[in-house]
């Protein structure tokens, strides 16, 4: 075991893992996190806390993870390289470990242009692959990137994202291989709507034997309305939504129910694809639906390890 987190145990035991995502508030109220943690507690193995997602300032991921930890819910601490340099990233990892956080997710982050401070300077001191490498060094060598020794242990279960729907498509799998080389332990993918393309990507992944070296969790985002389907299709960089889904969402009276049906179908198909080790449900602002989805997908109760 690298960090001995619940997520790591579930994945290492070979069971199909479930993670979910919770966004921190645009403010100071800790109850927002607590409420989301309570909703997600029984429906998944770990909860990601986003880090200034879409470049909009929110309560820090570290604080959100501590709040989850205090209520006995396992966090995944997301970290983007957009807002912090190598010093700040490492000190946040130390702080996270001090509070018992073991899962860390290394991301580039959406460009600051998309957020509420579009004129900010993007830090981008190191990139997400170098962040993975840095965390691995902290864990395995107990050394900072600069070479100094770290006092105490740094047990980290290192995650990253990958987007099978971005371009150049053929290169994507090589980028995954690069992340594995850097030391990543698990991957949460961008939301899968186009299952055929995802399956094609997974085929390349398994052909290269990469599924044996990293745990891949397929991302899903439940769609609430026809408007959201159209927005996801047209405005979210790197998300590919087939027309059939937009049409289905437009043609239904009960959009929420249809959205859940679609996600359940996608999860069902994903589970058939060799090499997929779990699902990551990003129900942004619709956390209450997650236990329902997980239950109807036949993934409850979650294992107690």
């Amino acid at each position: 075991m690298k960090a001995g987190t619940n997520l790591e145990k579930v994945l290492e035991s070979g069971q199909f893992a479930v993670t979910a995502e919770a966004g921190p508030p645009k403010g100071t109220n800790p109850d927002v996190i607590r409420k989301r943690g309570e909703l997600l507690r029984s429906g998944c193995d770990a909860v990601n806390i986003t880090d200034n997602q879409t470049a909009i300032v929110r309560m820090s991921s570290l604080a959100g993870c501590i709040l989850l930890k205090q209520m006995g819910v396992e966090p995944v601490m997301q970290m983007v390289v957009r807002d912090r340099n190598r010093l700040a990233l490492q000190s946040d990892v130390l702080g996270g470990v001090a509070f018992g956080i073991g899962n860390f997710l290394c991301l580039s982050g959406d460009h600051q242009k998309f957020g509420n401070h579009p004129t900010a300077r993007g830090v981008f001191d190191i990139d997400s692959i170098q962040l993975i490498q840095m965390l691995k060094k902290m864990r395995d060598e107990k050394k900072f990137l600069g070479g100094d020794d770290i006092s105490g242990e740094a047990p980290l279960f290192i995650g990253a994202a990958e987007n099978p729907f971005a371009d150049p498509f053929e290169y994507r799998v090589h980028r995954l291989a690069k992340k594995i080389k850097a030391g990543v332990d698990f991957i949460q993918t961008q939301a899968v709507y186009d299952v055929a393309r995802f399956a094609q990507w997974m085929k390349m992944v398994t052909e290269m034997g990469l599924d044996k070296q990293v745990h891949i969790l397929a991302g899903v985002i439940p769609i609430k309305s026809a408007g959201m389907a159209r927005y996801m299709k047209s405005s979210v960089p790197g998300v590919s939504v087939p027309d059939s889904i937009v049409t289905r969402m437009a043609g239904t009276k009960n959009a929420k129910e249809e959205g859940v049906n679609i996600i359940l179908e996608i999860i069902g198909q994903i589970r058939q694809i060799p090499g997929v080790h779990g699902v990551h449900i990003m129900a942004v602002g619709w956390e209450e639906i997650v236990p329902d989805i997980v239950g109807r997908a036949g993934l409850l109760p979650r294992p107690k390890l």
Binding site: H111, K113, I129, A166, P237, G238
Partner: peptide
């Protein structure tokens, strides 16, 4: 590269364009 990446394209690269601006090559 709008994110000064050193190790390959981010997840927002689509159709040869940068996620930051559809008029800018990735």
């Amino acid at each position: 590269c709008a994110k000064l990446l050193f190790n390959g394209p981010c997840g927002g690269s689509v159709g040869g364009k940068c996620e930051v601006d559809p008029g800018t090559p990735c």
